[in-house]
Design a protein around this nucleic acid. Structure first.
Lengths: 207, 207
DNA sequence: ACCTAAGTATACCGTCAAGTATACTTTGGC
DNA sequence: GCCAAAGTATACTTGACGGTATACTTAGGT
């Protein structure tokens, strides 16, 4: 019995996440979660007061995991076009990843019961990325603040939302990704992203 | 007892939709649906084999209701800029309407169990609107087909997805609409739509 | 060595909801 | 007017699941 405290807590979170993603909130049973976490229901309830609290903990946990994927890595280089394309490509890829899609569906499914969960999740993902993009435009390209924000929103609208929305509704093939890997994979076509980035930069610089 | 056949069937569908939207698939009880439809569970099961079939019937029913809102009315006038702005504004408004949002969340919540439901729903809404936009551009403005499609996708990306996605996650205030009314209401700001339409038209004509 | 906190194993309770059964009433076509 | 189809009223069966209870084991600090 080496697995105590945080270790076990993490195993529970991970197992619970799998079960919630696979079955949805209501059909996910605490019995199954305990089984997958290789522990007992009694212990589950020692760590999490009830199913609702466990669910919220999972949203938070996932938020953290996703945020870690969405940094602006230094090794994207100094060329803004190139760096922006890589960043956007990687973000798009992360968001159409089937695990992300299922997580979004889960939070959306329960948005009525847990409005804060959905809103926080959204803000943590989309808000953060939008801010990072705007900051990059402002700092590296000396674009004025309000223009930078508008440009970031616009860029995301063109690149992300169409494919993301389609993926949400299951209208795109499922995307499986590795947990590591910092470069966009073959699941995203960089060509339209390059075009959108180029156009955004041109417009932003012109003002 | 004047309400037989289709009449009753419609009452059931409407009541079931309310209950599903309010509680989600699993927490919606057939007892409550029967009560709201002012009938009995036995009759419910006479019209719909089981809960799943009822759910799918509701998706289809709603699809029809939404599609009816998304026509390109003749009274939008002959000026393409103006007509496109009205059309896009009305589509945006319809999609951030809280009933639409809840319906989308519902289909997304069950996308795992009913993949066809979600995909069909998506196609019926977004696919149809995209087609109508592209057709309009092609027919009224003589834009070549592939360009028209690209322009339509782009336009929707800029106008719709950002607000729609935010609304999905509950990051925008709820929008309540009247069932009738063919003009966009005060819930959508036409200014950014005008800009996007103008830019789209300029780009489409240039090619 | 021992005591306490954490975890295990397993059974149990109460509730709720899907779907069925049974006996009855209303309706409309003939 | 009658009869089959549609609908009503209500009770029942069955199973699942959230959460608790009880009795036990293990680990680790002192």
């Amino acid at each position: 019995m080496q697995r105590r405290g945080d270790d076990l807590r993490d195993r529970i979170l991970s197992a619970a996440k799998d079960v919630f993603l696979a079955h949805g909130f209501d059909r996910a049973s605490m019995d199954l979660i305990a089984e997958k976490a290789d522990t007992t229901k009694r212990t589950l309830y020692a760590h999490f007061e009830n199913k609702e609290k466990l669910f919220l903990a999972i949203i938070d946990y996932t938020r953290g995991l996703l945020a870690a994927r969405l940094k602006f890595p230094a090794d994207y280089g100094d060329d803004p076009d190139h760096a922006l394309v890589l960043f956007c490509g990687r973000f798009l890829e992360t968001m159409i990843w089937n695990r992300s899609i299922r997580m979004c569906r889960l939070t959306l499914a329960e948005a009525g019961r847990f409005p804060d969960g959905a809103a926080l999740f959204h803000e943590a993902i989309f808000g953060t990325v939008q801010d990072r993009l705007a900051t990059y435009l402002r700092e590296r390209l000396a674009v004025p603040k309000s223009t930078a924000t508008r440009a970031a929103v616009d860029l995301l609208g063109r690149i992300l939302y169409p494919r993301f929305t389609r993926a949400l509704f299951g209208a795109e093939p499922e995307v499986e990704l590795r947990d590591d890997a910092a470069q966009p994979s073959e699941h995203v076509d960089l060509k339209p992203i390059r075009a959108a980035v180029a156009e955004t930069l041109r417009a932003a610089r012109a003002r």
